[in-house]
Design a protein around this nucleic acid. Sequence first.
DNA 1: CTTGATTTGTACGTATGTATT
DNA 2: AAATACATACGTACAAATCAA
Lengths: 135, 135
Amino acid sequence: MIDRSSDRPLYQQLADLLREQIKAGELAPGAFVPSESSLMQEFALGRPAVRNAVSVLRQEGLVVSARGARTQVRPALERSVVELRPGDEVVGRMPTDPERRELGIDPGEPILEVTRADGQQQIFTAGAHQLRVVG
Amino acid sequence: MIDRSSDRPLYQQLADLLREQIKAGELAPGAFVPSESSLMQEFALGRPAVRNAVSVLRQEGLVVSARGARTQVRPALERSVVELRPGDEVVGRMPTDPERRELGIDPGEPILEVTRADGQQQIFTAGAHQLRVVG
DNA sequence: CTTGATTTGTACGTATGTATT
DNA sequence: AAATACATACGTACAAATCAA
């Protein structure tokens, strides 16, 4: 599974394996990702490589981790529809850490900044919202 | 500067300091962030704490790092305007690592998925694009 | 309710590789 | 060619939160 002679870093190889399992549904939304110690043992990797691999998936928004609890595959959440109208503008970016804590945003979750035609600005979490243009 | 008795993790404190310098313009776009070893010495921190701090800023899209070169504050790039029309829909998310490599996207850069009224789908890097709704 | 085991987070150190300057 | 700088990867230790007995 892990090829130590490959050019691809070990943690990326592990991240690739887990990502494929998530995409294939073998690790379903809400399912627990194997613990760090399990992964260390199963793939004969050190803790840095394992943590780095899970970190990659967290940054991709595929899993969520919390201290003391098992890491799990992020459940696909329902997206509220936000209506856009002519003159509205949208940019996307990652929130800063203070913003994340203030707004309660998970790591790996971008935000969408909507500037309305009248100048008002709104911020939406990307994972829970879908923008739709209406006439 | 760094308070070891604080509840806030050391790497977060350092990330906070650097982020403030970036926001204040003391670290201007394109400027070099002090090297890891400088930061280790200046703030009496170990390598993991320093690397973790810079990693936070990279995930926020505020700095870009490359092997062998100094980490620098990400220059604000020009945003091409993408026009949205009635019936179009937009969602935002982080790209997976394979997507990032294929499309040449920097870490900490979200993508915007635009689904046109006719069903066609387009992907834009968030940092370089701005969506505008036209009648 | 408390205890103990498990799990992730934080933080230290070290070594080596690789790309840039 | 040499020095610098970041990336990868190993190990260890302790803290803090969760969960199950």
